[in-house]
């Protein structure tokens, strides 16, 4: 103890140095956008790799559950294939050129779900073609939008973040509203600005509207849990989210080949 105090007294200036340099770097990072972006990217690579190894260990504990999800998905896809095959007379008439979307599977290496501003980190980045503003979906519904990507990792803004906004609609009646999250529960989001004559019902399906060029149209979001008429003749609808963020391990990133074209066209018009 004595020796430690002696050391501290002798080398206290090194502590002062480290402290002041840390303050300087924090100031640098918080007030200079360029340096900030480089630090954040480097940080994402480092923490991404760390989380990936932690997640690797955790994966074993969830193997059974993941198996179940995959089996269920297999069955669903098999059913679809069956239906499609029945509807096509022979392979010559199949058209392979119309796919607008490309799916990249990715694994979640880190996520938060009990905060107000939650984020996910996935193990695919620029090298795998994942860039800003791509849609992310899970097996049971939409997940979020890619916020930033570094070489091998990307940060996703999930539905359960208070900054999240997406246009979604009631599938039955095609009325469109804004999906957002108000921070209460990671299982429930809100659909706002649905006009009063839309006549929603509990249990109605909510899907993406496809207006934003990020998400394709008609992806499952959730079902209506309850709703109330607000002042100004709009409904406030509570949506049971299809995705349970606490049990989410694998996602698909959707690359819309025509997104750039659509955004450019829309910007030109303004």
């Amino acid at each position: 103890m004595r020796g430690l105090l002696w050391l501290l007294r002798k080398y206290n200036y090194i502590l002062v140095f480290i402290f002041l340099e840390t303050v300087a770097i924090i100031l640098l990072s918080n007030h200079n956008l360029y340096q900030h972006s480089i630090l954040v990217n480097a940080n994402r690579e480092i923490t991404g790799n760390l989380y990936e190894s932690i997640e690797g260990a955790r994966e074993y504990l969830n193997l059974r559950q993941n198996n179940e999800i995959l089996v269920r998905e297999n069955a669903r896809l098999r059913n679809r294939l069956e239906r499609l095959e029945n509807s096509i007379p022979d392979s010559l008439s199949m058209d392979f050129t119309t796919g607008n979307y490309f799916y990249t599977p990715a694994k979640i290496v880190h996520s938060t779900h009990f905060k107000q501003f939650n984020y996910l980190t996935i193990n695919k980045g620029r090298k795998q073609g994942v860039t800003r503003d791509m849609a992310v979906i899970g097996e049971e519904g939409i997940v979020g939008i890619v916020l930033e990507s570094s070489a091998n990792f990307a940060t996703v803004l999930p539905v359960i973040n208070r900054d999240f906004r997406l246009s979604a609609k009631i599938r039955k009646s095609d009325f469109t509203g804004i999906l957002q999250w108000e921070g209460a529960s990671h299982l429930v989001a809100n659909l706002n600005e649905i006009p009063y004559h839309a006549e929603p019902a509990i249990g109605d399906t909510i899907v993406t509207s496809g207006y934003s060029a990020v998400f394709p149209e008609g992806l499952f979001v959730g079902t209506i849990r309850e709703f109330a008429l607000e002042e100004g003749n709009f409904y406030r609808i509570y949506v049971d989210l299809g995705t349970d963020f606490q049990r989410l391990f694998y996602v698909n990133v959707i690359n819309n080949f025509y997104r750039k074209e659509q955004v450019e066209l829309e910007n030109n018009r303004e």
């Binding site: 200036y13 340099e21 300087a24």
Partner: peptide, 14 residues
Amino acid sequence: TLGMHTAATVFLAF
């Protein structure tokens, strides 16, 4: 340029 000259000058003093 908050932080830039600070970091360099603290290093200089060090």
